[in-house]
């Protein structure tokens, strides 16, 4: 499957990553190389094979539903790049 420069830029947009022109061209070549290698999967007949999304196939373990205090506001804001001591601060959205 050929991957165009526009595809790379579109994926960048979806990923919230903006490569510059030179980087995008390099990524296009690398993706072509990598995705080309992936083509070998098409040689395998996977008709009727159930995909395996996780080795843990049982039901997820559930804990007792109880109220527990896990962390406080000060701790949660400890690593924030900008906060008001109450909330995370980001550029205005409205």
């Amino acid at each position: 499957m050929a991957i165009s420069l526009d595809d790379v830029l579109h994926v960048g947009e979806l990923s919230k990553i903006r490569p510059n022109q030179e980087e995008a061209a390099c990524l296009q070549a690398q993706f072509a190389d990598i995705l080309g290698y992936m083509e070998r999967l098409n040689a395998v007949d996977t008709g009727g094979v159930e995909p395996l999304y996780s080795p843990h196939e049982g039901l997820p373990a559930v804990r007792e539903d109880r109220v527990a205090k896990t962390c406080n506001r000060t701790e949660l804001l400890m690593n924030s790049p900008a906060d008001s001591e109450e909330f995370f601060v980001v550029p205005r959205v409205i």
Binding site: M1, D7, V11, S15, F31, L41, V49, P51, L52
Partner: peptide
């Protein structure tokens, strides 16, 4: 993001997950 994106999901991610089962 590419292999999960619309139109490519089955060709890549699902296919790879089936091969994972094998």
């Amino acid at each position: 993001t590419y292999v999960l994106s619309s139109g490519y999901y089955d060709a890549y991610y699902k296919k790879a997950s089936q091969v994972r089962r094998l």
